[in-house]
């Protein structure tokens, strides 16, 4: 067994979550109260606070063509549903749950209308070996590989890896146990590795 240099061993890296979009609990409560009263400025503020994450999640789960439609549906549900929002979870968690549910429902409806097939050629393109260790086209290949995954795997990868949410938050959003969330993430990453082929540094 040959020893490998210390710096070539893949090491753990804690997620650096994207900046939280939800303010403090009291800020959330004030914003929710103002939106319930129908104050236009508060509604616009809430939209701008969450628009990137809602649109980004929808885009990566349902794909670019339907993302705007789904994001619109989510925000309409958010504003219409704020009256019944009980505050059991954080506002952001509730909105992400609506986003994931709307996206998965949209895919289910679309799936009934037309089956989306990923051709072998496109999978081969995804798995093209990187020319350099820092593959400049990796981001676009990852985006394309995401679209080839089953929707459930897509959702957990987007929530945990792209958006940097914790397993506890992901479990709340997906309404499953933390253990289920972890095992789904493990399987989703394994499937992505299969689709993308070797992308890591070789030593």
């Amino acid at each position: 067994m040959t020893e490998t240099a210390i710096d070539s061993i893949p090491t753990p890296a804690l997620a650096e979550p994207r900046p939280r979009v939800s303010g403090s609990l009291s800020d959330d409560a004030e914003l929710i109260a103002a939106c319930r009263r129908g104050e236009a400025r508060a509604m616009e503020m809430l939209y701008h606070q969450f628009k990137r994450r809602v649109f980004g999640m929808a885009h990566r789960i349902v794909g670019p063509n339907d993302a705007e439609e789904v994001a619109q549906e989510v925000f309409v549900r958010v504003f219409r549903g704020l009256a019944a929002f009980r505050g059991d979870a954080a506002l952001s968690t509730w909105i992400y749950r609506l986003t994931v549910n709307a996206s998965l429902s949209h895919l289910a409806r679309r799936g009934r209308r037309q089956e989306v097939h990923t051709s072998d050629e496109s999978l081969a393109e995804l798995a093209a070996p990187p020319e350099t260790s820092r593959d400049p086209g990796l981001a676009s290949r990852i985006e394309a590989a995401l679209q080839a995954l089953p929707p459930g795997y897509r959702a957990i990868l987007v929530l945990h890896d792209v958006e940097g949410l914790s397993h506890e938050e992901c479990a709340t959003i997906l309404e499953c146990r933390v253990g289920t969330c972890k095992s789904q993430l493990h399987k989703a990453r394994a499937r992505m590795r299969e689709l993308l082929g070797p992308i890591g540094e070789r030593s």
Partner: peptide, 12 residues
């Protein structure tokens, strides 16, 4: 492990 680390970093 290197592939998965690259994937994780790429997704993030």
């Amino acid at each position: 492990a290197a592939d998965e680390a690259a994937l994780r970093d790429g997704l993030r």
